[in-house]
Design a binder for these strands. Sequence first.
DNA 1: GGTAACTGGGTTTTT
DNA 2: CCCAGTTACC
Length: 672
Amino acid sequence: MFEPEWDAGLDDAQLAAAAHSGGPLVVLAGAGTGKTRALTARVARLLAHGADPSRVLLLTFTRRAAADMLARAAVLCGDRRAAGKLWGGTFHAVAHRLVSQYQEVLGLPSEFSVLDQADARDLMDLLRHDHGLANSAGNSERFPRADTLVDAYSRSVNTGVPARDVIAGEFPWCEPHTDRMLDLFRAYMARKRAGGLLDFDDLLLAWRSLLRDNTIGATVAGQWDHVLVDEYQDVNQVQVDIVALLCPDGAGLTVVGDDAQAIYGFRGADAAHLTDLTGTLPDATVVRLERNFRSRQPLLDLANVVRPGEVALQLHSDRAGGPRPRLVRCYDAPAEARLVADAVLEAVEAGRRLRDQAVLMRAGHHSDLLEIELSARRVPFVKFGGLKFLEAAHVKDFLAGLRLLDNSADEIAWFRLLRLHDGIGPARARDLLGVLRPTEARADDRHADAVAAAPAGSRLKLNATLEGITTARAAATPADRAAGVVALLRPLLIRRYPDHPTRLDDLDRLVAAAASTPTLAEYVATLTLDPPNSTSELAGPPHLDEDYLTLSTVHSAKGLEWDSVHVIGLVDGGFPSDLALASHTGLAEEQRLFYVALTRARDDLSLYTPLRMPHQRYSGSDRHSLAPPSRFLTDAALDTLDVVEVAPPATAPKRAVTTARVAIPQLDDLWA
DNA sequence: GGTAACTGGGTTTTT
DNA sequence: CCCAGTTACC
């Protein structure tokens, strides 16, 4: 047996974090300071010192981060088998595992469904209509949209602040509707309970309830000796409560984070949870990681100027030299797209792979022009963030079908499926929900009743759909059941989507993926809790060998790094987003987001400022107005940047003026 | 009273 | 793409 080298290559600060024993540990880790490495080493050391892997819990921001870390820890401690026994994943994924385990204790039906954000919105929308709050002509004041309702509701749950105060503080324009919103939230809770539906927030609430329970709480918390939480600056109040219940007085707790990288305030997270820890846990050991292993010093000079936050970490690098970051001032947005594509291809010429380069933006749609430019030049790319594969209508239809196989009380799933039929819109679907709601009557009878209640023109197809569900339910393997759902969807999707061939291909791929899962319910939960991040992630291996450029929102780029990074759209209103400009807290989060973007680069960093943006009022025309550069490009920041002025594009040759008249053919013979 | 099909305005970030 | 509003048809 060889001596495990969990401490190989760690510097003193990382070693202090990895080797710490006794009392809670708080690691304040600047960007690129090897916190993942320290955390991984710490897990490996715990195992090497005899910790039981099944009693170690590693909570990370994405499931992939947990998987990577656990695999590396297993290698470091020389025991690959241990990796399988470690608990790891996102708060939500672990919560789901526990909720499944304690589903009876929690008073949940044997089959429950997990609602993602879009499902939650659909349910809220359904109730909005039920309560007569949808906008009708008579309403002078618009009732908030379903998205806003879910937002406000979720914010209240995640922060523990009463909804009334959340609305007044964060959604002041909704205040006249407060009472009706609160009614709606109560109805939302009731509907979920009745249908065995849990939204993302409920998963965390359920976990917290288990831990708080007098009889069972100690057992649940007692199954782990060590709890390690990554990205602690992005946890919300419920997650803080969970951690506190898991580790009373901080015993066995390790927390890693950086308050300057807190970018999820919009979903109830608060970096104060990290900075307050030293107060709530007086005996905590604090380790600071300030030595950056990722970026060259000229890049850190800019990052240190931009860095906001309470904890004053100054990053320094051993990697001196290299070019200063560039600020490219472009004529307009199309010029920006061309310049980015130019730069990427130049780097390829110089020997840098596409996959070592990335383009980062504030919002998913900021790369629209660039995507057109890259496609035109045949540059392969993969986009992360923005619209998700799982949000595509046909994929949601498919998942709704799967959920119905296990949970026939899932109203949101029924609602989706019913509306796919010609002649059944929101109103008839709502009526049919009442008929399909589980009763003592057998499912077949309810199906028959529903067919009878449907408009005549839709009965044949609806009958086929409901029979399809019965058939799929009876199929033996998960793959067969999934295939059954696709079979019943096929005619509906063909009728509905003009581009059905590609959509049906997607579904075939999802069916294939279902073959390797023990149960369909687990498959659906995994897809919902850990959706593929890009459309290509589901495409599978053939894509992985190819070289491609990464486009990503800054949020989705968190924790990642590339040799060369381009940050685009640095205008006020773009990055920072105009929606955040109004409030101090909003703007502070934008600045942290900017800091995260800058610190993704290892060697080369380019920032792009289009100087003209399409004029808001005349969008669609060629009118432009001067765009104010991002306010984050302060004088101090500019001191660390090389500014590149790009000349305006050569003016297009004036179109020849001609007096010739060209007639547009009337094609009379076609209309004869 | 309800649906389908179209139009026009708005569009942050995600477990 | 989502959502609301309009219109034509059942």
